[in-house]
Amino acid sequence: MAAGKLRVGVLASGQGSNLQALIDACADPSFPAEIVHVLSNVEGAYALERARRAGIPTALIRHREYSSREAFDAAVDACLREAGVEFVCLAGFMRLLSEGFVRGWDGRMINIHPSLLPSFKGLHTHAQALQAGVKVHGCTVHFVRPALDDGPVLAQAAVPVLPGDSADLLAARVLEQEHRIYPLALRLIAEGRAVVDGDVVRIDAPHAGQALVNPVAP
């Protein structure tokens, strides 16, 4: 483990393509963060295989083995802290986190959501966007607050909604952008250039006066 780098834990429930984007970014020696642990609640989640291939320690904590959300979250919290995790990235972690867990990682946990928040919270965001008839869709990296898909926005990327789009076609284009902005968001945090100020994120970066939409990597 490299000294001075932000120690990151990633929670994932599925394929882990956003996890892979973070793994690839962290493979650059100049990247200011390192993934020290990957945890899933789903046995057989491919995210765990991605981590193992990268030599990252993993854990499987099955939520069905716990009597309550709080008990499961306590086990996750203990695992992360035992691994020396300093910052948490949610990468398709399909569990609603308890308020106590979120408060415990306040300002130290981000999520990537497949919509331009605050629009289209929850599941099936691409179908929601098509049903609403919006012309622009996208993804958001945000700090996590107790409410669902809520919290200060750090970065967003937009894609056009094209004639004839299906939810799957739109999802594929959005996912490409997710893979681009999640590592950028983590870099800004690890370098101390993104700071939560109430309900907004202040960013010390080139062109910081502009919205961080479709950003160019610093």
Rank of each mutant, 00 (worst) to 15 (best):
R50S: 05
R50G: 06
A51M: 00
A51R: 04
A51F: 06
R52H: 02
R52F: 04
R53D: 05
R53Q: 02
R53A: 01
R53H: 00
R53W: 07
A54C: 03
A54R: 03
G55K: 04
G55M: 01
G55F: 09
G55P: 08
G55T: 02
G55A: 08
G55Q: 11
I56K: 00
I56L: 08
I56W: 03
I56S: 08
I56V: 02
I56E: 04
I56F: 01
I56T: 01
P57N: 13
T58P: 00
T58G: 03
A59E: 12
A59S: 15
A59C: 04
A59T: 04
L60A: 10
L60G: 04
I61E: 10
I61N: 06
R62D: 15
R62C: 13
R62A: 12
H63Q: 11
H63R: 14
R64V: 05
R64P: 01
R64L: 07
R64I: 06
Y66I: 14
Y66T: 08
S67I: 10
S68E: 02
S68L: 11
R69G: 06
R69W: 07
R69V: 12
E70D: 15
E70K: 12
A71Y: 08
A71I: 00
F72L: 01
F72R: 02
D73N: 13
D73P: 01
D73A: 10
D73H: 09
A74Q: 00
A74C: 06
A74N: 05
A74K: 07
A74G: 12
A74T: 10
A75Q: 09
A75L: 00
A75C: 03
A75P: 01
V76E: 09
V76P: 10
V76Q: 09
A78M: 04
A78K: 11
A78L: 07
C79D: 12
C79E: 10
C79M: 01
C79G: 02
C79I: 02
L80M: 07
R81C: 01
R81I: 08
E82G: 10
E82W: 01
E82D: 15
E82M: 06
E82A: 15
A83C: 12
A83Y: 08
A83F: 02
A83H: 06
A83R: 15
V85K: 05
V85H: 11
V85M: 14
V85W: 12
V85P: 05
V85I: 15
E86M: 10
E86D: 11
E86R: 08
E86P: 06
E86S: 10
F87S: 14
F87I: 13
F87A: 13
V88K: 08
C89F: 14
L90W: 04
L90A: 09
L90T: 00
A91H: 08
A91I: 00
A91C: 15
A91K: 10
A91D: 11
A91W: 09
G92P: 00
G92F: 00
F93Q: 08
F93T: 03
F93I: 09
F93D: 10
M94W: 07
M94I: 10
M94C: 11
